[in-house]
Write a protein that binds this DNA or RNA. Structure first.
Length: 604
RNA sequence: GGGGCUGUAGCUCAGUAGGAUAGAGCAACGGUUUCCUAAACCGUAGGUCGUGGGUUCGACUCCCUCCAGUCCCGCCA
């Protein structure tokens, strides 16, 4: 209903301006016309509300209800408004409650049924300033030779959902996996590789490391304890950076091995993402230094080249530096991040020509990004009308409120976590089948538990306000009650059940005679029509949990409707009308689950 | 010392851009099935929105103080 809201707002604005001019207060219009019409704070008040009379009360120094009476009178004379609205009611101290006409709502339902995006308008349909953009979403970003854990899970699925929402709105999206594929740790890894296999790495293509994580741990241990190993590792880093053929071969081996393991996870989670690791930006690092030098913001301090940040100090109270080049001449992650940011905003062919860059990383990096963005701004690397956002998220905790770990205190492997969820979903399913004396094929059982298991993990994460830490609980996320994936999937299954037992043909359903009378029908209609507003708010604030909240409410509303309003038993007209609501609920749910990266089910 | 974030029902959490009586789920108690998957639905109970100020016609929401928790802070990412 975003389009209707816009239209209504426009008409209200015109009248407000006219009213202000008549009262000689034209100048305050700019200040007060924002959010002229809001969502109704409560359903029973109507669809929208306008609180402007309370604001005008102060400006005109008159009673707000009095103002409301005259204001409403003028509004009612407007044809556009009277076409859209049932009635304008003054309530409380001077709120104007707006209720849309039934036929308008029904038209919206019909049009959303036809719309492939269930009523979500493309961005260029709403306003010109918000037209098609190139958006880069930087997410997932695991490190070579390290295990993916729950932290990567959050980044991955939040990033995936945000990307999908932008795509739905018609933007061009580049999903980038900023893999940690460069840095000092490769010195020790390559040295370990040489020690364990052949020193000359002659038959490098035949080397297979069975457990890369164990390999990493072992080499880290040697690096920390053996001086000789440390020395060789440092030398190895230099060789690698110089582009020594053998070192590069070894580096590639490690990356390929890691990539295979990442891809397995991405396949399980059904994630598409373009790999572009840190090493990609190596050729651009030197010019970062030069550029900052030219702009006179680079300062040498204790041998390191830094940019000092505004508004931040260190423990001694001195300005905090962002180190761009270490005293040994090496670069670090701030340098890479700056090079990446500049490249992404640059025009093609030496850039991505992005309008907006979104970084989905854990909250621990918030300060780092504040620094990086500040330096980028100082260096003029963020073009006008372009935007950078850090999308931080909190920790995943165990039920004990501490960082999620195995009983032995190790990080939990993402692989294990996902298969555990599927296993539990399968156990639940089997129990249910037994209780209900149902028989299902192995294929059904396998697929259903996979969809529920993976979906539950994703949904639990996405439904949480990302900023706060959250407690990971298989029991809760797989529960059939509450704001969970199984609850939403069950709602979908109910609709599929209706579809299966419905004997009407397509042609019958396309009939025009749609009408509603039941209170629960109207509640469902109004809930359905809020979908686009939710999507647009997420595009702005990057909070996917709002979609989950909405879906939960939608399903609750639908289930109340389903419980009390018969569908298939009804006469033709009523039946068609109600089937239409089922169809739009189904469409909205399926599309939303797709946005959340969760597969749908017809039976469960 | 500086900076980020958090503090809402017994527990886990929602709460756009300030609006009318602060919402869910779980747990507790009670009710609903000739009907489309009861994996559902309905009801009862539960709150000084961390504290104290300020701005406002109006504050969980904005500003400041303080308290508590957590993360980051010179050559790791």
């Amino acid at each position: 209903m975003q389009v209707i809201l816009k239209e209504l707002t426009k008409s209200f604005e015109v009248i407000l301006l006219k009213n202000l001019i008549e009262n000689g207060k034209k100048e305050v219009f700019e200040k007060i016309h924002k959010n002229l019409i809001n969502q109704s704070s409560k359903e029973e008040f109507g669809d929208y509300q306008c609180n402007i009379c309370l604001v005008l009360s102060k400006i005109y120094k008159r009673n707000p209800r009095e103002i409301a009476i005259t204001f409403v009178q003028i509004l009612k004379e407007n044809k556009k408004i009277s076409n859209l609205c049932e009635d304008l009611e003054i309530a409380g101290p001077g709120f104007i409650n707006i209720k849309l006409k039934n036929n308008i709502l029904i038209e919206e339902i019909k049009s959303n049924l036809q719309c492939p995006r269930a009523g979500v308008p493309l961005s260029n349909k709403i306003s010109k300033s918000n037209s098609k953009k190139k958006v880069i979403v930087d997410f997932s970003s695991p490190n070579i030779a390290k295990e993916m854990h729950v932290g990567h899970l959050r980044s991955t699925i939040i990033g995936d959902t945000i990307s999908k929402i932008f795509e739905l709105r018609g933007h061009s999206v580049l999903r980038l996996n900023h893999i940690g594929d460069w840095g000092t740790q490769f010195g020790m890894l390559i040295t370990q590789l040489k020690d364990l296999y052949s020193r000359d790495l002659k038959e490098i293509e035949n080397i297979k490391i069975s457990d890369l994580v164990e390999f990493y741990k072992a080499s880290k241990k040697r690096f920390d304890n053996e001086k000789e190993f440390q020395k060789r590792s440092r030398e190895e880093v230099v060789k690698l950076q110089k582009g020594d053929t053998q070192s590069i071969e070894a580096w590639k081996l490690l990356c390929n091995q890691s990539r295979k393991e990442f891809d397995e996870i991405y396949k399980t989670l059904n994630i598409t993402i373009k790999e572009r690791g840190e090493s990609f930006y190596n050729p651009y690092l030197k010019s970062i230094i030069q550029d900052l030098k030219c702009k006179k913001i680079l300062i040498e301090d204790q041998g390191a080249k830094c940019v000092f940040l505004d508004g931040m100090t260190n423990k001694e109270g001195n300005p905090l530096p962002l180190i761009i080049q270490k005293k040994d001449g090496g670069f670090n992650y701030a340098t890479t991040d700056l090079a990446a940011l500049r490249y992404r905003f640059n025009k093609e062919p030496n850039g991505d020509n992005a309008n907006r860059i979104i970084y989905v990383t854990d909250h621990g990096q918030a300060n780092h990004f504040i620094g990086v963005f500040q330096v980028a701004k100082k260096a003029n690397w963020i073009p006008e009308d372009c935007e950078v956002n850090h999308v931080p998220f909190g920790l995943v905790q165990g039920i004990d409120g501490k960082k999620l770990k195995t009983r032995e205190g190790d990080t939990i492997r993402l692989k294990d976590l996902l298969s555990e969820s599927v296993k539990r979903a399968k156990e639940d399913l089997l129990k249910r089948l037994e209780n209900e004396s149902r028989f299902e094929s192995d294929e059904f059982i396998l697929n259903t538990s996979r969809v529920i298991g993976i979906g539950a993990v994703k949904y639990a994460d996405l439904s949480q306000n990302r900023i706060t830490n959250y407690q990971f609980s298989f029991e809760k996320m797989l529960s059939l009650n509450g704001n969970t994936a199984p609850y939403l999937l069950y709602t979908l299954v109910r609709i599929s059940g209706i579809n299966r037992k419905n004997n009407m043909t397509e042609e019958d359903i396309n009939s025009k005679s749609i009408e509603y009378s039941h209170d629960l029908e109207w509640k469902l209609i109004r809930k359905l029509l809020k979908f686009d507003e939710v999507i647009i708010s997420i595009e702005k604030d990057l909070m996917p949990n709002r979609l989950c909240n909405y879906l939960f409410e939608l399903c609750q509303t639908f289930n109340r409707f389903y419980d009390q309003v018969p569908i298939l038993k009804e006469q033709k007209e009523k039946k068609i009308s109600r089937l239409s609501l089922c169809a739009l609920t189904e469409k909205t749910l399926k599309l939303s689950l797709e946005l959340l990266g969760i597969e749908s089910l017809e039976r469960m």
